[in-house]
Write a protein that binds this DNA or RNA. Structure first.
Lengths: 184, 184
DNA sequence: GTCTATACAACGATAGAC
DNA sequence: GTCTATCGTTGTATAGAC
């Protein structure tokens, strides 16, 4: 059951929801049909569990960099530049282009929550930067947070399109350079 | 045959490649099996034609704003703020999360070319801005271009996750605000 | 060129034995 | 709890008539 969830996480990351069949999940988890349908009502419920798990992992991983010490720009830069499997894309963000996920509120909800949390967390850090004078009063925390999150998500898209991590890294460096008081 | 390509464009946009069946294409195009398989060898070849078409349309639409008159920031802002069907996502960018598209070089190529073109075009404009003194010498054109393209692609992802255009608009405004000499 | 018929695998789930 | 059998549907394509 633990293996079922983990295998589903992997397959959703790699192939999306539409592209993942119950049979493929069973094979990856080394479980039979009966086992899967005993623990879950079907593909959708299992996917929901897997997406929630991946969302929680994403939040934890982000918090690792974002809760560190240092200036706002330092923490944001740490977050942007941490090691990522860029060419695999974002396991949460990619589900956003899956029609059956978007059509099912149960499946979309954990995705919504994950990004809503991320933007709020980034906005907090930007707001801190404003309070201690690191950032000018003209900087809007919610806007800037959305921009940061978007550069990452868009960076994945550009990198996969190119078959190379380069566009991702360019986009991140470009953003860091645009942040006020950039270290360069 | 024209209808087949157009219907495929729509379905790829909405459901992706894995999620689109030949039968669905035929229904949408009001064409029979025989017709489709007479003009194309199969789903892949038809998809290739549709993706190329969509890529060309994306380039034309971008050029509408990017080739205008005005400062670099004005043209980039025009491009970022033009009307878009945000919640439908980017018809090219979304294919980037489709495993069967990424696995087939024939299908990935037009996607790669489209974004490579876009980043180069944006980099030209940033470089122009540097030459005429609008932007400081420290601004890297390729980096900044990648950042701009990424904000759009990521903006789509965040908006679809939220079920609202708001995150897209926040991300765009945030970026415009970060650009040197922002009008704001 | 377009139609209908046919093929065969995969999808997603259920049933009933153990 | 897990296994095997079965089911009806859809996916993707080919064949051959018109």
């Amino acid at each position: 059951m633990e293996r079922l969830i983990r295998s589903t996480q992997e397959l959703l990351w790699e192939r999306g929801y539409v592209g993942t069949s119950p049979k493929a999940i069973q094979r990856a988890a080394d479980a039979g049909q009966g086992s899967m349908y005993h623990h879950f009502t079907g593909k959708a419920q299992l996917a929901r569990a897997a997406i929630e798990r991946s969302g929680a992992e994403l939040r934890e991983a982000a918090e690792d960099q974002l809760s560190g010490s240092g200036t706002a720009t330092e923490r944001i830069t740490d977050y942007l530049e941490r090691d990522r499997e860029v060419l695999r894309g974002c396991r949460i963000g990619r589900l956003t282009s899956d029609p059956d996920v978007m059509a099912d509120p149960e499946l979309r909800q954990p995705i919504d929550e994950t990004f809503t949390w991320l933007r709020a967390r980034l906005a907090e850090i930007v707001a801190e930067g404003k309070r201690n004078g690191e950032y000018p009063g003209s900087l809007d925390p919610e806007q800037t947070a959305a921009t940061i999150a978007a550069v990452l998500q868009g960076g994945y898209v550009l990198a996969r399109a190119a078959g190379s991590v380069e566009p991702f890294e360019l986009a991140v460096k470009g953003l860091i350079n645009l942040l006020p008081e950039a270290t360069k």
